[in-house]
Write a protein that binds this DNA or RNA. Sequence first.
DNA 1: TTGTATGCGTTATCAC
DNA 2: GTGATAACGCATACAA
Lengths: 334, 334
Amino acid sequence: MSIKKIAEMTGLSTATVSHALNNNRKVSDSSRQKVLIAAHEIGYRPNLAARMLRTQKSSTIAFVIPTDELNRNANYFYMDVLLGIRKKLAETNYYVIVSNYGASAEGEKSLRAVQVLQKQWVDGIILVPSSRNPNQLNILKEMGVPFVLVDRRVDGSDFSCVDSSNETGAYEAVSLLARSGKKKIGLLGGGLGVSSGAMRYSGYKKAIHSLGFDYEDEYVILAKQYSIENGRLFARELLARGIDGLFVSDNVLTMGAVLELNSQGVKIPEDIGIIGYDDFDWMDMITPPLTTVKQPAYQMGYVAAEMMMRKIIGMDVNEKVMLDTSIVVRKSHG
Amino acid sequence: MSIKKIAEMTGLSTATVSHALNNNRKVSDSSRQKVLIAAHEIGYRPNLAARMLRTQKSSTIAFVIPTDELNRNANYFYMDVLLGIRKKLAETNYYVIVSNYGASAEGEKSLRAVQVLQKQWVDGIILVPSSRNPNQLNILKEMGVPFVLVDRRVDGSDFSCVDSSNETGAYEAVSLLARSGKKKIGLLGGGLGVSSGAMRYSGYKKAIHSLGFDYEDEYVILAKQYSIENGRLFARELLARGIDGLFVSDNVLTMGAVLELNSQGVKIPEDIGIIGYDDFDWMDMITPPLTTVKQPAYQMGYVAAEMMMRKIIGMDVNEKVMLDTSIVVRKSHG
DNA sequence: TTGTATGCGTTATCAC
DNA sequence: GTGATAACGCATACAA
């Protein structure tokens, strides 16, 4: 099953066999034929461990995600990202190892999850960082592991990353609510500890200002935990504060909010217009169908993998790619 | 960064260092201390490629799934399974490589996806088979790769597998519709080419019989492709044939069916009671909230990984585990 | 309790 | 165009 065996079978040296198989140097056609035939005959498969030991490359990358027990939808979002990564890697025969860390983890913990997948093992890491703090990533950088951030950025660094236009997405959502006649538009958002949360918050604020509204502190609630319960709780509070429009910048909070409004008999979108975040097929099915900001999850994965491959090839560039969000207009906004 | 370096630092041999690190044979406390300290000092990490080459074990397993572009929900289901696998593997420091194949692929194609992840590379494969045909898996068996099937079984073989009680789930769903007063209960199901589809169909039939109903061919449609469009199309047909209850044994078809009924102004559950398959949080949000058969996806992954580890340890047993489904009772059934 | 030495299957360097 | 052979880092059989 080894190259040595093929060498014996063909009467060639292991060197020639290796080169015939990998096209690394000129090999005569007759030799190549012999090798290929023999290889086929014994069902030869290269031993990746040996190759890896020799070349210091594993043809494998890691995809590291936060997993939040409370928020299965977030995991589903990353599933789409993962399939995008797979798509790209399949083109080049790379593998992907999936690892995860607790979403509630401090940066410390997420890094440990990353350390396991060390230089020795994967050629690179595609990572959803746990916070905007770049410190943990500097360690990775020092280790010399190529990495690409996806979905979230970190502050003040030029690490490669691909995310979507969170700020614009939020801006447009709020603008659409306003165009639909809403005047007291609330934000139910995620924490500012991750870039996506921060950018959506920023987009909300910018929209409020450019629409000529006053920014009201009491119309904004930023949740630390993304649970349906929190969605209900905070939606109830915002409702009591008199909003007539609501932008919810997280998909689980969105579910809680809609549930709460429905159970209070609030009419959507007449009484309150609502726009959620992330797009799933089922959003067509709720009453009324939910207008949302859509991120191109699959494409984010694909692009991240492309960037990863470029790094592995040796192009030592750091690229920041921001893919477009879009508003999927259904009925709930107004 | 290698064992050799530690040997130099401590004045011990590489053998002793290796044993000190892995507890494979008695090492004096003083030597062990020296080794541990030196290892810590240089931030030693074992080179997995070298270990793998030497031991023929990779501490890695593959998880191979079908991916269906039309059915993102199916992918999400597998995400839950994946996280269950991860949970178990994290306990033993195993890694998981995720691979996928086109859902529409013939057995042939799915096997090829598996071949890539060969003996040389992963210690075992957790696999969602593409069909009930065992032939492709016999090849795997011959290769000597431990594998565990998950979610679906294959015919007439004793391969290890873990799935859920599809037949009982379907049986109970139909029974519940009947208890709610439905008398002409239709089935919109998946193809019989995979075991889950076949078992749900069987459960439907058994329920119909034991309820004393006549099995009506025209109340049953089995879809080849799981798309929302098909869900709508076939729901419309069944509706025209006079059903008053509908069990949909696939989550995407369920979405199409509900969409169709709603758009036709059919009242759920008064006019038609409906029960879907698989349970997601969002099912609370549609009107009316959807009663479904729930599979323990996460646990299926966890158990599959447990079985895998047992096989890797060397226990050459084939186990068939069937986890319980349950009915999540909401409002749509009656 | 410890050390020596071999080989896992490749790729790559050097020589021819 | 080809062949010997070293080396990647580790685990282990065999010796001591």
